[in-house]
């Protein structure tokens, strides 16, 4: 059963982020993914997040897809023009990749190739238009295609927004849904209270929202997230991690609890971001 079918029947889907290597050594990625392939519904392959150059999402997704693991391939607007984006989408489908996630792409100044020229030939909404246009059997220039792809399309949504910002995000989500987006992945959540305002305004039965559950690897990481990335992590949680004799196990316990809470709250699934602890995913998913 593909991811689309799982969404359709209302299964609580488990997605796991599987970052391609910064190099060609794909063994770690393959091993981590293979160990959890039965428990994970699809692997989200990011496209050079934070503008850090690594193996492309198309390559990474193909590595997993060729081994029978379903993937969600990310595409961003920063690195490719409309010709290349459409070309890579066709290539993806031709290689068995049927799930796509569109993102804008962070500025190069955040990554490791500061001097590069960001492309942004088309913006995110136009990218979604390109994805839906290709599915009608035409390209953006109106030319007929020899075979049309069929994609399940994802996007991000900031479920932590409140007040006016929340209204803007809801309008954006509606716009993206009209442009063909089927599911939305929300940023990392540690306390469901932070996404309560969002939860109240969205009909989770109609719109598929998938919050990210990030493995808290250390107290240092928790502090970094709160100070620099605007992520809310309660002091209680930080203390818990600080006091734990075995941080890794405690981190997994915390993640397990959050996943359970996300499921209870009626979300369509969860996206696990292991942040380098992909080898511990199996342990986590055994508990879930």
């Amino acid at each position: 059963m593909h991811l689309k079918n799982k969404f359709d029947v209302g299964k609580f889907t488990i997605l796991a982020e599987m970052q391609p290597p910064k190099g060609v050594n794909v063994s770690a990625m393959i091993n981590s993914a293979t160990r959890v392939r039965k428990a994970v519904d699809a692997f989200l392959v990011p496209e050079m997040g934070n503008a850090i150059m690594r193996m492309s999402a198309l390559g990474g997704a193909m590595v997993l897809q060729s081994r029978g693991m379903e993937t969600i391939m990310q595409v961003n607007c920063r690195d490719r023009n409309r010709i290349a984006l459409q070309a890579d989408l066709l290539a993806a489908y031709g290689c068995g990749i049927i799930n796509i996630m569109g993102v804008s792409g962070e500025d190069p100044s955040l990554g490791d190739h500061h001097q590069t020229k960001a492309v942004h030939d088309i913006d995110l909404m136009t990218l979604f238009k390109a994805i839906s246009t290709l599915q009608t059997g035409k390209d953006l220039a109106g030319n007929e295609l020899s075979g049309a792809p069929e994609f399940l399309v994802g996007a991000t949504v900031n479920a932590r927004a409140t007040g006016d910002e929340l209204e803007k995000k809801l309008a954006e989500m509606e716009e993206k849904t009209e442009a063909g987006v089927d599911f939305f992945i929300a940023p990392p959540v540690f306390d469901l209270g932070t996404i309560a305002p969002f939860r109240e305004k969205v009909d989770l039965k109609k719109t598929r929202i998938i919050p990210t559950v990030m493995l808290l690897k250390s107290v240092g990481m928790a502090r970094y997230l709160t100070r620099h990335l605007n992520v809310t992590i309660s002091q209680d949680l930080i203390k818990r991690l600080m006091r734990a004799p075995d941080k890794a196990t405690e981190s997994l316990s915390i993640a397990t609890e959050i996943i359970a809470a996300v499921k209870e709250a009626g979300f369509a699934g969860v996206m696990i971001s292991a942040m380098g602890w992909e080898d511990k995913l199996q342990k986590l998913l055994d508990r879930v």
Binding site: D107, P108, S109, H114, Q115, T116, K117
Partner: peptide, 12 residues
């Protein structure tokens, strides 16, 4: 050296 586009409009 590869062009540094940060000083161009590409850098914002």
């Amino acid at each position: 050296a590869p062009k540094d586009w940060q000083t161009a409009r590409d850098g914002g």
